[in-house]
Design a protein around this nucleic acid. Sequence first.
RNA 1: GCGCCCGUAGCUCAAUUGGAUAGAGCAUCGGGCUUCGAACCCGAGGGCUGGGGGUUCAAGUCCCUCCGGGCGCGCCA
Length: 599
Amino acid sequence: MSVKGHVLARIFEALDACERENLWPRVLHRSVPLERPKQAAHGDLATNVAMTMARTAKMNPRDIAQAIVDHLGASPDDPVITAAEVAGPGFINLSLARKLFLSSLAEGFAQRERWGKSRELAGERILVEYVSANPTGPMHVGHARGAVTGDIIARLLKAAGAEVHREYYVNDAGVQVRHLAHSVYVRAQEMVVDTLPYVGFVPDQLAPDDYQGEYIIDVARKLLEPLTRQSREGLITSPFIEILSWLQDAVVDLVMKEMIEPDLALFNIKFDKFFRESELHESGRVREAINTLRGKGLVEKRVLPPPKGQERADDEIPPTSEPLLVMRTTEFGDDVDRPLVKPNNQYTYFAGDVAYHWDKLQRGYTRLINVWGADHAGYVQRVRAAIAALGYDPKVFEVVLVQMVNLVRDGVPVRMGKRSGNFVTLREVIEEAGQDATRVFFTERTSTSQFDFDLALAKKQEDINPVFYLQYGHARAASILRKASERGIELPQVTAENLQGLALPEEMDLVQRLLAYPEVVTGAAKTLEPHRIIAYLKETIGAFHSYLTRYKSTEKVLSDDPVKTRARLALVLALKLTLGNALDLIGVSAPEQMTRTDE
RNA sequence: GCGCCCGUAGCUCAAUUGGAUAGAGCAUCGGGCUUCGAACCCGAGGGCUGGGGGUUCAAGUCCCUCCGGGCGCGCCA
């Protein structure tokens, strides 16, 4: 049982005792917050139950707190609570038995790579959808943040005991893919035109909305590569519209297999499934979803009004007054109703997404977590509406909105566009900064914060980069253990007995920080906030360095006193395990030693 | 104009989800390596938590309202 578990049991006993004496009305279900105070003077743990009870009990919180303290039975010899006192407006500050911490740490260490993992979310089946970048080119830095965030959220949920599947939704059915196919078609024609046995063939031209990027030529080359000369000629001389369907499929396949999947692999990000939007259309799932909505009377054919507010400056999309099939998402909190079928009789992207999320729900997931870019914020409400309309609890649908990354070079914004082909790829960033650093860079902050990614700075930042700090902590612990072995000191078992030699306040502080690790993991998992792991690492490592420095000339880990040495080595072992597990959780390597590459 | 996200030290961000005296890194200044790794540590300066109002024992955190920034706002994805 955890330290908090022991303490909670005692607090509940005390509450029971008070209620048996009718000091206040009995409450059946009560939560008791138990926190580690910021200030050491406030004890090892503190609770504010008394203050939360004051209102319903109609009593002074200090009086309640005092009654609880009186029934807590704290004494210096107690195996759990050695002292308890009322403080401030009604806090109860608790001092705990040293032995309790030490044996808890030993128990934790015994779990090895399982230390920090829990069964907190056991029974939940969670689908995490992330990246889902359009299959129209390589991934750029803008996708990196979502990729890292989604990956780590999946890892956190798994660590908390949930069954987790990772999915990438491939939008291979829209006009963008049509433009992609046409771009490749044109490039392929240009490559083959010279070898044609007859003259007079005129290649197509790239349309304004087609993709200009260099990589299109690569895709075209890869497309033609496996084909015989005859097939190549047949392909490029066929009218675009005739081979469109085949071409789209082939091109998306190439982009996914040759560009996106390898880049993700470079990042050590894997998916359980790449879900093709086209599957939903081909299998009739989209039609089925719309029919279901129709059966509920939520679909109608009508003219949608133009958007409110400012007039569109450009005339790209002419206003249409044709009636189209819309879903009444406004009945579920959306701003306006959303179209399902376009005037040209094609399904909208939204129609596909309704079917997709319906499919997810029918696969039995209890939670659907989508990691989306902030530019999709306006989309959340309509999908949630669809889920509610299909008869599911909209709360199962959660969206982590990852804010935009502004790419700058020396403070000057870098414009990016996939069509223009002007962008910095994910591959370039990873090759430049490394996987570990990129992961940390995108995980440090809350996903709601927007920030600039300065390419020039990223190079210079070697010393500033937080990843080194995180890894250095682990390496330094490893180094001490290595040094001990060099001196012929046997590494101790991490047991409560061996830890008994810990006496310094900084040592007990470290013990308590390590003991907090499992809660940090479950906390990060429950809030879907990966940055908490980084924050924990920074704080714990900071405390470790500080401890080592303070006692570097007085109380070293490897001292003349065998009892202290054994205890401190056991602490370092537990620390190294905890840091290693935490780094592993966020997909960052935990080196045994570090070597400087610069200077 | 409407919707969503955000506003905390000069800069980049935290703050145990409503708790006690708001903390780190970078930058600036000043210290600390003959002995376990100085990619480190210690100290100093720097704050009306954008402004105002409200909710309560308690607000950076929740509600309202202004101000400022980002994203989105047809039938693109």
